[in-house]
């Protein structure tokens, strides 16, 4: 098994931390993982993306030209990465930042209205977890318990009380695609 994932959007949307939680979940599940961010001066507002690879065997390149799965959170990222999803792959996107929807028909395109779901949950910090939940609902590459253990690893202890909220958001995301 090898899953090559790109997550792309604005800085501040939780793109990098979503990738990090996924990578830690892979670690918890005894998989090989790489997490390669686009890094830059931007903290908020600029574009940000992260490539996460989860695999049963050693990973060669952390830099890819095509992806099994893309999670897309704004128009620039859709323009850049839609064509790079492998035929038969999956593209998850949040329509709130998208004016021109994806057009490919040889991949599975799934619209996930994470912004609305976030409003329902009433917590802005749940946004990226809803999308991660949706991703895992479509591509169950790591089990839920590994994700929760990964969350525990990435969150500082003082934020561990937020884990139930995150779990709720993950489940909400799964339900949107399930």
């Amino acid at each position: 098994m090898k899953e090559e994932i790109i997550i792309a959007g604005f800085g501040g949307q939780g793109v990098l931390s979503m990738g990090k939680i996924l990578a830690y979940a892979g670690l918890m599940n005894d998989m090989e993982v790489t997490w390669m961010p686009s890094y830059g001066p931007e903290q908020r507002g600029g574009t940000a993306n992260v490539t996460v690879i989860l695999s049963d065997s050693a990973i060669s390149s952390p830099v890819l030209d095509s992806y099994d799965t893309a999670v897309i959170l704004n128009q620039q990222s859709l323009d850049k990465f839609e064509s790079k999803v492998k035929s038969g792959g999956t593209l998850v996107y949040d329509p709130s930042g998208i004016h021109h929807k994806p057009t490919r028909t040889d991949i599975k395109v799934v619209e996930v209205n994470a912004m609305d779901a976030m409003m329902e949950l009433g917590n802005a910090k749940a946004y990226n977890m809803i999308l991660l939940g949706a991703l895992l609902g479509l591509r169950p590459v790591v089990p839920m318990d590994a994700v929760l253990r990964g969350l525990k690893k990435t969150l500082p202890e003082r934020h561990h009380h937020l884990i139930p909220l995150n779990e709720q958001a993950l489940l909400k995301g799964m339900s949107l695609v399930g």
């Binding site: 990090k20 990578a23 670690l27 090989e32 993982v33 790489t34 997490w35 390669m36 961010p37 890094y39 990973i59 952390p62 830099v63």
Partner: peptide, 10 residues
């Protein structure tokens, strides 16, 4: 290089 400096892996 910036790749191996910034990337995370095991």
């Amino acid at each position: 290089d910036g790749i191996v400096g910034q990337m995370m892996e095991k």
